[in-house]
Design a protein around this nucleic acid. Sequence first.
DNA 1: TTGAAAGCGCTAACAT
DNA 2: ATGTTAGCGCTTTCAA
Lengths: 324, 324
Amino acid sequence: MATIYDVAREAGVSAATVSRVLNGARTVDPAMVARVLTAVRELGYRPNAVARNLRRSRTTLWAVIISDIGNPFFTATVRGIEDVAQQAGYSVVLCNSDEDPAKEETYVAAALSEQMAGVIISSSGSVKAAKTLLESPVPVVAIDRELPRGEVDTVVVDNEAGARTATEHLLTAGYRRIACITGPEGVSTADLRLRGYAGALPSEPLVVRTDFREQGGYDAMSSLLSSSDRPDAVFVANNLMAVGALRCLADRGVDVPGEMGLVGFDEIPWADLVRPTLTTVAQPTYELGRMAARLLVDRIATPAAKPAKVVLPAELRPRQSSAR
Amino acid sequence: MATIYDVAREAGVSAATVSRVLNGARTVDPAMVARVLTAVRELGYRPNAVARNLRRSRTTLWAVIISDIGNPFFTATVRGIEDVAQQAGYSVVLCNSDEDPAKEETYVAAALSEQMAGVIISSSGSVKAAKTLLESPVPVVAIDRELPRGEVDTVVVDNEAGARTATEHLLTAGYRRIACITGPEGVSTADLRLRGYAGALPSEPLVVRTDFREQGGYDAMSSLLSSSDRPDAVFVANNLMAVGALRCLADRGVDVPGEMGLVGFDEIPWADLVRPTLTTVAQPTYELGRMAARLLVDRIATPAAKPAKVVLPAELRPRQSSAR
DNA sequence: TTGAAAGCGCTAACAT
DNA sequence: ATGTTAGCGCTTTCAA
């Protein structure tokens, strides 16, 4: 690969001048600019970002560490992040931790080693990854899920209120024994949605914890169906588990919403095309991403500012699965 | 941030020794290893990958440039890539071109500037991006879609055969006037699936081209419904457009599969939960990702080897939407 | 306005 | 087995 010195020689100028031209300094003679650009084109020169980053001690890359690329929730969120990032001159690289704390730690370590300009993370619960990030100088924004013990910029939805609304909706519809399927302890969305559910319930809570995956939801629903204290409705704390639960009910021939009501948290892509259509608590995903990116831009500009916490509203979308 | 020299000073050794310890050289005295590791821990030292990459003139990052992060097709594919990459000592960063050639070009440029160790790309059709990649020394594997005019390692499914099978399936089911909704010209999947469809058809083809998005499928179906030559079945060349088409039919109250048969190419996540369930041509997505990653590993090891082209089979999954 | 030169942090010859 | 040293490619003072 051609280096900046090759270009300099070809154009008959110094490397410093080439650098100035390429970085848009206005103190360069137009004639030289032309010569440099010609040389760049002829040699097919492409600046080595690694060298530049080393010299500048900074990069223009953001790492966005998401917990499950298979969850459509992240699609719109990432788009929101990308749109703001691009405008601010950053490129976004996505890292998929796949709900695996070990992978999350690997990606956090990589982001720091690679001197990324910032990190946006939806924690899969690794305390170690969170600690590493917090002790590092890299600007961090937590999204969707709070960072364990983290005093950092955070963008979440009002999980507790959303869960409460969903549970009250089931009560209003006439369901009496409402269970909750939620995610792993220590993941803030799992815990807060559980709290919202429990708070809305006049009776004793009935809780199953599992992972945030479709299979987890299936298994959880399966165990609820065969329990002695079988519920007549379930609030499911994320979208993929809700789909799993729905599939389980279909497989078992349980009538939804007649025999069993169902509300999920998080939209699923074709919530209105599945049968029965799925009642969900929808989140402003795109806006979540935009907001996180804006916070990160601000944080990079002002590292010492007090961390912000933004809570966006979630909204119930009543559909068939809860309409008794 | 602490540098390798800080660690060296703290441990009372040279920077070279620290480097050796950190890179697992076995020619280091165990006592020194211990001292170095202690110093590393005390200082919270973290190697600067940018400096390392510059010095080594290589990185351990792969760029995976996908054309639409919102398409669930890529979920399993990316997982396949990641699993192989991790085993081979590479980290994967995802870049979402969002079917936008300009974004694709930006990400290709970034991947080259950042000296990424390799690129796996699902082209959104930018000839310029393809050219840039092919003229660069970076190892490239095309996945899902062929790279425009690219003599590179390629992993695709047998699009033509899959489309033919789908079309024949509709004919066998008794549909007579079968249309095709496909993607942009120049995108290999769009063109090959169209060819497979046309090849299987005894009559004149009826084709609508649009983008590969849900809205595109909706609009295309809408125009087919109001055309004078209204079809009784449609083969839709990707998953998102199939969902759009299905939604359009639902909105218009057209009975599927009675009034209109439908087959999509690519699975959708809950094909069996939507109503009617959607007949699709399924692809071995995870295997596609694994294969691409394996080719990339080989290519990095043997840059001069002849490019391979791997064609994996696609498989019809008959469901309700085509069962007249 | 331009060039010379130093140095970002690391690794790998080479020397000891 | 360990240290010395040069240099990866770039940017940015500093001097002219």
